[in-house]
Amino acid sequence: MSQRSSRSERRHAPPGRRAHPPPAGVPDAPRSPSAPPSLLLAALIGPSLLGCGPAGGASFPAASELPEERRRPDGVAIDPASAPPRPVNRADARDGVVTLRTPLGIGPALDVVAEFFQRVIAEDSEALSELLTRDALAIQTGSGGQGQPPSAGLWWEQRFRRLDYGKLAGEPIYRESELQIFRAEDVLAAPQHPAIQPETLDDQDVVIRVPIMTARIAADRLLGDEIVVWLRRDGPRFKIYRLLEDFQIQ
């Protein structure tokens, strides 16, 4: 009975507690407690730190111990940067380094034409002069080319004093769909007016022929049947260089 009970106890005992008796005649060996992992890690790292550590503290020279040599300035450019070339409309490959202007579209030219008629209706001489180049001329096409054409600014000042352009307010002056637009190369191929001299055209000039819808108010003739607006580039915009119109002040 005692042997059966001992077998059943060994069969149901937990695996961690299963005893293994030593062989006969061999005494039980005493077990020493295992060292914690932290102590083992310190024992391994400690000697290496002691062996690799510096022998003494780092030392830096004091200001009084520095050499008294004169400090040299930082390097500077020997040649100053040159200014870019002046912008031009056209250049040749043999010209070397050049700066080309970006061509203006037709939109800015149409804006100047619209502003011109708005300022004419307002009879604003000062605002109108802002749209003109310094050498802008008003060419009377019906005069047969006789005489010196007047300055465009002075010509319109005379018209403002003699005629009432405020009567054109609210009236249709022109239709944008009827405008005829010509670039310099178009004018050179087929001159649009005898007063337009091809030799004086710039590469970026624009010529716009404006058919006038409302030239008269009652008995007052205020505009010619058409006005040719010759525009020339002035910096980032166009300005009026010539105004060609068949009109006489009565």
Rank of each mutant, 00 (worst) to 15 (best):
Q146M: 12
Y165N: 05
F60G: 04
L137D: 03
P23I: 04
A219G: 06
S59A: 15
P22W: 03
A29F: 00
R216D: 02
L49M: 10
R232Y: 03
G105S: 11
A13F: 05
L110S: 03
D111L: 10
L244E: 02
A93T: 14
A127Y: 05
D111N: 11
A81N: 05
A13Q: 13
A190H: 04
E176D: 08
P22R: 09
R221D: 00
E65V: 08
G144D: 03
D135F: 09
P236G: 06
A77R: 12
P87S: 04
R209P: 01
Q192M: 07
Q204N: 13
A42M: 02
G170Q: 10
S8F: 15
A190M: 04
A190V: 12
P73S: 07
P198D: 03
T141Y: 00
C52R: 10
S82K: 13
G153A: 15
S34E: 08
R71M: 14
P22Q: 10
T141D: 03
R31S: 11
R175L: 10
L66I: 09
Q140E: 04
H193E: 14
H193R: 07
A152F: 10
G75P: 01
P33F: 04
R10Q: 08
Y174I: 01
G170K: 08
Q158V: 09
D186Q: 10
P80N: 02
A63E: 13
W230C: 02
R233W: 02
F116W: 14
S38A: 15
A169C: 07
P194F: 00
G153T: 10
L179A: 05
R162S: 14
G147E: 07
S59M: 11
Q118I: 11
S5M: 11
F182D: 13
G235Y: 01
E68H: 14
Q140L: 06
P21C: 05
A93G: 08
S177F: 06
F60A: 12
F116G: 00
Q148A: 13
I240Q: 04
P22N: 08
Q180K: 14
T141E: 05
Q146H: 12
Q192D: 08
S82V: 15
R237Q: 09
S64P: 03
H193P: 09
V98D: 03
R90C: 04
L132T: 06
P22T: 09
P23N: 08
D28L: 09
P103D: 05
E176Y: 03
